[in-house]
Amino acid sequence: MIYDPNPVAFWLLAAMVAGCALAVVRARKLFHAGLALVGTLFAVAGLYGLLQAWFLAAVQVLVYAGAIAIMLLFAIMLTHNMMNPDLKSLTTQPWTAAALCLMLLAILLGGTLSSTWQTAPDTTLSPTWTPKCGFQVAEAIPSVQALGFRLLDPFTLPFEMVSVLILVSLIGALVVARRNPALPEAPEGREEKAP
């Protein structure tokens, strides 16, 4: 069984991912960068579809593009005057950073592209744990059902931990983001100028 993704779809989506990501890090206006992020997230969801991870594509659109990106857009609107055009200096030291990132890219590509990957389910390993539900670890196409069993069978503990993680970040975020009625607030009009 050979999996062969459609090259046209791949290159289109890849171009969209790279283009939108470039816009996220280079756009002159912060709001445009936020919208470009939504575009990147949708394109990545498309790639998940191409990789036949349908459930993850849906999660990506719902949670990432739907919730996380919108929350970031809200944060932009809360902290910025949309009419304020003064965002020319959104980016600093582009050339040093670009050189560093190209180096990182070379390392990552060099390290990954020449490697041998685990491209077949490993039969030499004697698994120390066989899921009780009888599902094989390697499914040709990851079905939602198999995914659900996998989440609940060996990955029970991290699954529970994620709920704790979200709870603690909510408690803490509420404290830090809320105004403190007990203490005086910094005056509204105070504008800090660069030294």
């Binding site: 991912v17 990132c101 990182l104 990954t112």
Partner: peptide, 15 residues
Amino acid sequence: AVLFCLGTYGVLTRR
């Protein structure tokens, strides 16, 4: 890898 490096670039340069 390209996406990761673009993200790194953004973290380094955005103020």
